[in-house]
Design a binder for these strands. Structure first.
Length: 105
DNA sequence: CGGCTGACTGCGA
DNA sequence: TTCGCAGCCAGCC
């Protein structure tokens, strides 16, 4: 487990219930800059860990992305709705539920 | 060591 | 508005 991954997990675990954030925001927060893809890769490994709310991490469109989302039993959308997150079609209403990791500093 | 891939993002056409 | 290309970083051939 690299320090990079640890930083990603640390940020994701700080996401409040009913809130979501983006790969890019996390990348910027941990100083990775534009390595949003690597953040997603880290979440890929984190998806196997129940302690990591990877369902609260979406792309810039607010759409749920990831291997987990494609697995029917996951139903990330319904899970988020249970937490109070509202949806606009297939995407999360970012204006209402976007959480900026940098605010947690 | 070199190249390909991937849960992304931003810019240009 | 939508599509395509390039950049970035880590992991696996």
């Amino acid at each position: 487990m690299n320090d990079f991954f640890h930083r990603v997990y640390d940020v994701v675990m700080q996401i409040p219930v009913g809130k979501v954030t983006t790969y890019g925001a996390i990348a910027k927060r941990i100083g990775a800059g534009r390595s949003a893809r690597t953040v997603g890769y880290a979440l890929n490994a984190a998806a196997n860990d129940e302690r990591i709310p990877c369902h609260r991490v979406v792309n810039r469109n607010g759409e749920l992305s990831g291997k987990v989302h494609f697995v029917p039993p996951s139903r990330m959308r319904e899970l988020l709705e249970e937490e109070g997150v509202t949806f606009k079609g297939e995407a999360v209403v970012m204006e209402e539920h976007f959480w900026n990791p940098e605010e947690a500093l």
